[in-house]
Design a protein around this nucleic acid. Structure first.
Lengths: 225, 225
DNA sequence: GACATGGATATTGTATACAAATGCCATCGG
DNA sequence: CCGATGGCATTTGTATACAATATCCATGTC
């Protein structure tokens, strides 16, 4: 990852995911190049990749801007992710190995540790979660499926709301991971597929609830100003 | 489409889809630039896009080559396409408009005309087929779904075998389009979804049969040499 | 005063030069 | 004869200069 275009990609991506670059912001190549300490050439490559990820969009005249995700876009992405990731779970269950089981259990353990702290370690939770899903995708053994899911996993709005997850939500997510693990241990593809569908759609509704709550809060705040 | 990078993308893509650039061939940026009459910069952009399409791959040291599709890769792509495109069909049925119905019927008419020639007009068939599926995707109204399917629709091996479709296969494909049209006319999402799944998977098996036949023929030919 | 027009300014697209790395091949040593 | 090593050729990565295009603002006209 020492190539300049990779650094630019990572840097811009982080700025978008963190919200430092807000939705709708214009992305001038020159300005980004200076921010990343590289020339425009690698920045242009990075922007193309981010465009494929649908994290940035383009006007009809090739001006680049941070993509603005409507609530419908998010719902759409979650539904597609539920479909694809549950398929990955089924394939993974059918091809599961003992070595992969051990890694999955390890990921779940660190995830459990993260949520049992007196103050839940959300970053640790997200890391364990990411690893869990990555192992499933790896065992599923479809490069194409992995490529399709790649653009769906990290969504800017979602990451920011994940930090507001209640302990109860974290606990439920962990419980679902344990149930998925049981399905994998039994090599039961249909079971794994069903739990994964439910897991993703529950996460979507947790997001949607948080989104509504934030909208209400925002409106209250605006009214107060 | 007058930008140099678009021309390069189209030109290289056609060379891959037509088989002019065979699977596994090294793709030197300089050589491609000369072929397309542009400089390396737009060629590099085109290669990145083709990489996202999974039409080209990269070695661990960044050398680019034409992707080699195993029979398993093709099966994988067809299964994913069946899943995604049947979802598109369901959404399209639920959102269908009279105007879109008219366009779908028009695409089917030109498709019917193409296969009724004394010598079937396969290019015309493929055009009508493409338009039919494009309208469905448009009516489905999910930009993200369209983006995911974009990388799955045109596969090099498939296009080349489509030209060997028998009249019977073309006729069956057209019959399935008519049945899909009926499902759309009834706004019946479940029906449309089921037919589309079947439509894609039948097309896969037609491909797989042709592939096996070609393998046999190839082996015979080799033995004869 | 509103709108069109023109030019200055900013931004993107392409070409090219150069730097870095990779691969190939010949030569040398065992 | 086989393998390792060094250097040359090729290829990719990055920066920069220049060209084409879009945006914006000011000016002039109705």
């Amino acid at each position: 990852m020492s190539r300049a275009s990779d650094r630019a990609y990572g840097a811009i991506r982080n700025m978008i995911l963190s919200g430092e670059l807000p939705a709708g912001a214009q992305l001038g190549e020159e300005a980004l190049a200076e921010m990343c300490g590289v020339s425009r050439t690698p920045v242009r490559e990075a922007l193309r990749r981010l465009e494929a990820d649908m994290l940035v969009g383009r006007t009809d005249t090739q001006r680049t801007f941070v993509a603005d995700w409507s609530i419908d876009d998010v719902a759409d992405a979650f539904e597609l992710r539920a479909m694809l990731e549950s398929r990955a779970a089924r394939r993974a269950a059918e091809r599961m190995t003992d070595a992969a089981m051990a890694r999955i259990r390890g990921a779940n353990r660190s995830l459990a540790t993260a949520i049992q702290q007196s103050v839940p370690d959300v970053a640790g939770f997200l890391d364990g979660n990411r690893e869990f899903h990555a192992i499933i995708l790896e065992v599923a053994g479809s490069r194409r499926l992995a490529a399709l899911l790649g653009t769906l996993i990290e969504q800017p709005v979602v990451l920011r709301t994940a930090r507001q997850y209640s302990r109860e939500e974290l606990r439920r997510s962990h419980a679902e991971h344990e149930e998925l693990t049981a399905a994998f241990a039994r090599r039961d593809g249909a079971w794994a597929e069903a739990i994964m569908t439910s897991h993703i759609l529950r996460a979507y509704h947790a997001y949607a609830d948080a989104h509504r709550a934030r909208l209400d809060a925002g409106m209250t705040q605006e009214a107060a100003e």
